[in-house]
Deep mutational scan, measured.
Amino acid sequence: RRPMNAFMVWAKDERKRLAQQNPDLHNAELSKMLGKSWKALTLAEKRPFVEEAERLRVQHMQDHPNYK
């Protein structure tokens, strides 16, 4: 499986939080909310998630050198 990108790293915990706050929302609505929230973040706010995604990408390359 591919490593998570920055959005997916961020959305993993954010989706849980949103789902707890909005138990009646379907996954499609949660995804739309997550997309809008991600776009609203500044580059500085996204940076930790971008860095974690890069760390995961490098780790994935080391763990699976033949993955394409």
Rank of each mutant, 00 (worst) to 15 (best):
V50M: 09
S31F: 02
L34H: 00
R15L: 05
H60M: 11
V9W: 01
K36T: 11
L18G: 01
F7P: 01
L56H: 08
R15V: 05
A53K: 03
M4L: 13
H60V: 12
R2S: 10
V9K: 04
L18H: 05
R55T: 08
L30I: 13
E14Y: 02
K39S: 09
D13Q: 15
M4Q: 06
V50N: 06
E54I: 07
M61D: 14
Q21K: 14
L41C: 04
F7W: 01
M61R: 13
N5W: 03
L34T: 03
R55E: 06
L30C: 02
L25S: 06
V50T: 10
A28I: 12
H26R: 15
N22P: 03
E14W: 00
L18Q: 00
N5F: 02
Q21N: 07
L30V: 11
G35H: 10
Q20S: 15
L34I: 02
L41Y: 00
E54G: 07
N66D: 14
K32N: 11
M4N: 07
V9G: 01
P65G: 12
L18C: 06
E29D: 15
R1V: 12
A40D: 08
F49G: 02
A53M: 00
A44I: 09
N5Q: 00
V9Q: 06
S31R: 10
E29W: 00
E54T: 06
H60R: 12
N27E: 10
P23W: 00
P65S: 14
A44R: 07
R2C: 10
A40I: 07
R17T: 03
L34V: 04
E45K: 07
Q20C: 04
V50Q: 12
K36V: 10
K68M: 14
E52K: 11
L56K: 04
M8Y: 09
A40L: 10
R47F: 02
H60L: 09
N66G: 14
R1P: 01
R47W: 04
E54D: 09
G35P: 01
Y67D: 15
P48E: 05
H60Q: 14
E29Q: 09
P23M: 05
S31Y: 15
A28N: 15
Q20F: 06
E29I: 07
K32C: 04
P3T: 13
R15P: 00
Q62A: 10
Q21R: 10
L18F: 02
E45S: 03
R47K: 13
A19V: 13
R17P: 00
P48S: 05
L25T: 08
L18P: 01
D24L: 08
D63T: 11
R17S: 06
L30K: 04
K68W: 11
L30M: 12
E51S: 15
R55V: 06
Q21H: 10
L30F: 03
V50P: 00
H64W: 09
Y67C: 12
E45Y: 00
R17W: 02
Y67R: 13
L25M: 06
M61F: 09
D13H: 08
N22T: 05
H64F: 11
D63F: 07
H60Y: 15
K39L: 03
L25V: 10
F49K: 00
R47H: 11
A19G: 07
K16C: 07
L18A: 03
K12T: 10
P23S: 06
D24K: 08
V58E: 13
R2W: 04
D63M: 07
E29S: 04
L25W: 08
V9E: 02
A53Q: 05
S37W: 02
L30R: 03
P48H: 14
P3L: 11
D24C: 13
M8N: 14
P23A: 07
K39N: 03
K68D: 14
D24E: 15
E14Q: 00
G35N: 11
L41D: 01
A19N: 05
R47I: 01
W10Y: 09
M61E: 15
D24I: 06
K32D: 15
K46R: 11
V9C: 11
N66Q: 13
P65Y: 08
M33F: 03
A19Q: 14
M4R: 08
T42W: 00
E29T: 04
L18W: 04
H26Q: 13
Q20E: 10
N5G: 08
E14S: 02
L43H: 15
H60I: 09
A28P: 10
E29P: 10
N27S: 12
R57L: 08
W10H: 04
A53P: 02
K32R: 08
M61L: 13
A40Y: 04
G35S: 15
L25Y: 08
W38M: 09
M33N: 00
P48D: 02
Q59W: 03
K16F: 06
K46N: 00
V58Y: 12
Q62I: 09
L18I: 13
E14A: 08
A19E: 15
L30N: 05
A53C: 08
D13V: 07
G35M: 12
G35W: 11
L41H: 03
N27P: 15
L43S: 11
W10N: 11
R2M: 05
L56C: 06
A44M: 10
G35L: 11
A28H: 12
H26W: 03
W38F: 04
K12F: 14
P23R: 05
P3C: 04
A6D: 01
S37M: 04
E54F: 04
A6N: 00
T42G: 07
H26T: 15
K12L: 11
P3E: 15
A53G: 04
